[in-house]
Design a protein around this nucleic acid. Structure first.
Lengths: 207, 207, 207, 207
DNA sequence: AATGAATGAGCATTCATTCAT
DNA sequence: TATGAATGAATGCTCATTCAT
């Protein structure tokens, strides 16, 4: 809880965050004890509580920084893309690139998302991502490029495909991020482009 | 650990599984203690260990049963659907219906999926679901209805959209499952259908 | 706690005592639960408490019976031995024979001897054994066959050699009980005989 | 589990070992809970697990140290005794002296000896003691001072007399260790010295 | 006589956090 | 800044015993 950190202090702090993020991702937040972290770093237990208020707060900071970083990358990617569909494509592309080199943070976010204690924090980040994407989806609809539907749902569906393929392909199969990104983009874009709308085969029409 | 349960015992066992599933879903597995469960049920602690080997095994049984049940529902839904695309559609539909009435089990699965201890169990279930879906995806490709791509990736993308929309729409917004299912189906089908060839597999069924 | 047992009831009771004695000897009294016993016998838990007041009382009965039995064997052995030294010898012999065919009871006694809860019970048995032996030791001294020393200490030393060799030889080495008995007798008799006077108390008995 | 202890830490650790050894000896290992120990010392429960991996490991350390200490005393005693019989005598003497001032450790060893969980540990110590004694017994035989017999059995018999008299005399009667030691030495030495071998009165020669 | 179910105090162990140095 | 020591509530689990049937 010190107000100002020396540069050495800043390095220590970063070191703890990085190591903790790795361990949380590997073993799970609840299964990783503060002792595991300080022992793994070879420092005393006091160090931890010098830099972080609690284990809970440490994870919050890790998550917040990860979300900040991912958002920055996405914004950079779409910065000078005028076409709405293209923007979505490069955003997906950029997301995959970031995930591929920050796998542990991706895993950590997925863990936090289903943990009552941290869910709202992650959800806030997602809401921000959705809010970021919304203008482009709407612009696409206005331009007749994207099928008219609830833009929020569309945005969530894209998010779902992205994270699902990210987890399933990258984490479990070790496939090439570029290839998976390409498939995701193809799936999403053809899933949203304005074409005939398929009516849902609701079960009530069979019985 | 008893070999054979009386009918009263069977009821108790089921009661514990149901209550524990609810609590696990609500508070998280790690945050819910065995004491929470038995106190919530108003029984002694020994009761828990009369029926279950451990807290870990209880969750495994809950998950296994949930997966069995979901699979059963999906299989019933596609039982007499001849058309591949339609099969996928009704399977998605059935999944949403099941999820809507078993929200806690869905949340529990999502938790378990990111928990090292249980991930493999859930993943096995997913592999089964993918394996179940694969023949239909392949059939769709052979019939020229589905774009040629890695069928496994296609199947995973569908899974991702489904669970993502399930979570985001149902859990967080309380929207109508039928509507969300419809959007999911629209998104997925147009995401996978062969370009230029857009059959309306369900056109005969209009409300 | 029933007053009178049917013959079937008596068999059950004996069966439980035997099985429990084996398990107690094998795993230790504290490490063997009542459940282990009833499960091992394939009966319900109520059976145990029908026949025995408690786990504690069960062990007490097992021990008491074992001591009764051992004492009976010893008394029979010395019944018609007139010579004091020979009496001691045949008593040791008889003890080894009994121990060899009741290893588990020997182990159980050794356990109980160092367990605060049961030590006094076992000790009582030992006191009885010592008291039984004392007249012969004294007679031996009076006859000038045994060195004058505290007869109680002599008796305890014999007891110590016996149980020590019983444990170390039989339990851990699987040696022939007769041989070990022979060594024990040789050791004890020459350990107590009056110096310079070394009668061969069994010289009339040669194979 | 800490790597290096401060001097304060070392004192604490020793304190816990001493107190636990006393309590284990008095109440029994299984009857003494970790809570009993820390409450008795007036410290928090965590202290115990800061210094010891588990209750089991604590006892192992206590036993190992006791055995080390006893062995050291015995070796010192015989260090400059040239005569084999004399060596055995002073070793017995030294053992009684050590036991008299470490009664609780002696009781603890006897408990551990009959406890499946720790028996092998104690037995190892006994094997070492036997191995230590063996050369002297053999030397005595070679010098014609000790009756020819299995030297291992002889050694065990001495061990048996020693521990038996130690327990029965010291623990239960509060007699003078020197006197008991004298009796034990007399018993053992005359029990092993080379004299006429007494044939065993085998029971088969009576029937 | 016998069963399966239930009780609940008790146990070994963990761990986030605090503190003296 | 940093350390090792200490705290104590909480956890998963056991088990002797009781009870309704």
């Amino acid at each position: 809880m010190p107000q100002h950190l020396t540069s050495k202090g800043n390095r220590r702090r970063k070191q703890i965050m990085d190591y903790a993020a790795q361990e949380f991702a590997r073993n799970g937040y609840h299964q990783t004890s503060v002792s595991d972290i300080v022992n793994g770093l070879g420092v005393g237990k006091g160090v931890f509580y010098w830099y972080f208020e609690s284990k809970d707060m440490l994870l919050r900071e890790v998550l917040a920084e990860a979300q900040r970083d991912l958002r920055r990358v996405q914004r950079q990617a779409i910065a000078d893309e005028p076409d709405p569909l293209h923007r979505i494509a490069v955003a997906i592309q950029a997301s995959f690139a970031w995930l591929a080199s920050n796998l542990h943070l991706f895993l950590l976010m997925e863990q936090a998302k289903v943990d009552e204690q941290f869910a709202s924090l992650v959800r806030q980040g997602e809401e921000t991502a959705i809010a970021d994407a919304l203008p482009h989806v709407k612009a696409g609809m206005d331009a007749g490029l994207i099928r008219r539907d609830d833009p929020v749902v569309i945005a969530y569906a894209i998010l779902g495909v992205t994270s699902s393929l990210a987890r399933l392909m990258i984490v479990e199969r070790g496939e090439d991020p570029h290839k998976v990104a390409a498939t995701a983009i193809a799936f999403c874009l053809s899933g949203i482009t304005a074409k005939k709308v398929l009516p849902a085969p609701v079960s009530t029409c069979r019985k």
